[in-house]
């Protein structure tokens, strides 16, 4: 589904990614883990098109997307959420989620001014689709008219997931979806991520520090350390790998 081959990325003298290659299988959850500064978010930025790698290719379903800009990749069905929530704070939950569909809609200034015919029809269809597919699904119907600033952190993260889902993504990149959450909120979020995978068959890539969650929900795990890919495999394989234990706990003297 999503294939990353030999990605090299450097910022000046810092070699952020050194030959990362892996494949995320269709409809599976792939975890990307590693200590702070390992290059996980840089890898996400390469996949979504914000960083241009020095070498290497990103392919989706056999199509090379390495040359595409972020908005073109978004149109291909790659959606993402951010480590530090990037919602529009002054807007309501509903409007934020609607914005996720921006590129799928067709209204222009003239049809919008009148709000009749196509523009109105489009808006009402969008509303129905989002209510049924996203808002009901993520259980945020009680706050749909609330401004983002009025929501607790955990709900904001969920709304951001909702905005990404609104794009009807084929591939969903989640950057630390449960960072800073308590155990209950983490369990809720893990359940939503599994539901997304199960109901929509979305291919999910997950960067996360919460090892319990990664080991529980990921079918494959890729481990990065200082830009190098030191292991990949099933959660059990990775957990027993000597390099991974060394990277996380430090080498025995």
């Amino acid at each position: 589904m999503l294939k990353v081959e030999d990605i090299q990325l450097s910022f000046g003298g810092v070699r952020a990614l050194q030959g990362v290659s892996f494949e995320a299988a269709h409809g599976e959850i792939t975890g990307i883990i590693g200590p702070n500064g390992a290059g996980k978010t840089s890898l996400f930025n390469v996949i979504s098109g914000f960083y241009k790698p020095d070498t290497g290719t990103v392919t989706v379903e056999g199509q090379d997307i390495s040359g595409l800009k972020p908005d073109a990749r978004a149109a291909l069905g790659i959606a993402r959420t951010f480590q530090n929530i990037a919602l529009f704070r002054g807007m309501t939950v509903l409007d934020n989620i609607k914005l996720g569909c921006h590129t799928r809609l067709n209204a222009n200034v003239w049809s919008a001014l009148g709000y009749f015919g196509s523009a109105q029809k489009e808006e009402l269809e969008l509303r129905r689709d989002l209510e049924e597919r996203v808002i009901d699904f993520l259980e945020i119907d009680h706050v749909r008219k609330a401004p983002i600033t009025a929501l607790p952190y955990g709900l904001q993260k969920r709304v951001e997931l909702g905005r990404a889902l609104a794009m009807k993504p084929k591939i969903l990149l989640l950057d630390e979806p449960v960072a800073g959450m308590n155990r209950e909120e983490t369990a809720d979020m893990a359940r939503f991520i599994l539901d997304v995978q199960e109901q929509f068959g979305t291919t999910i890539l997950l960067v996360e520090h919460d090892m319990h969650m990664v080991m529980d929900i990921c079918s494959r795990v890729v481990v990065l350390n200082f830009g190098q890919q030191i292991a990949q495999g099933t959660p059990q394989e990775v957990a027993q790998s000597k390099e991974v234990i060394d990277a996380y706990l430090g080498q025995a003297a």
Binding site: S48, P70, D71, A74, A75, R80, A86, L87, F88, R89, G90, M91, D95, K98, L99, G100, C101, H102, T103, L105, A107, N108, V109, S111, A112, L113, G114, Y115, A119, E122, E123, R163
Partner: peptide
């Protein structure tokens, strides 16, 4: 008429630019 703009994607895009321009760009 101007209020109608803000019931569609055009007006939402304006507000998105006000709130956080780089996020708006990410959404296309």
């Amino acid at each position: 008429l101007v209020q109608n703009l803000f019931r569609t994607r055009v007006g939402r895009a304006f507000i998105a630019i006000r709130e956080r321009d780089y996020s708006a760009e990410i959404l296309g």
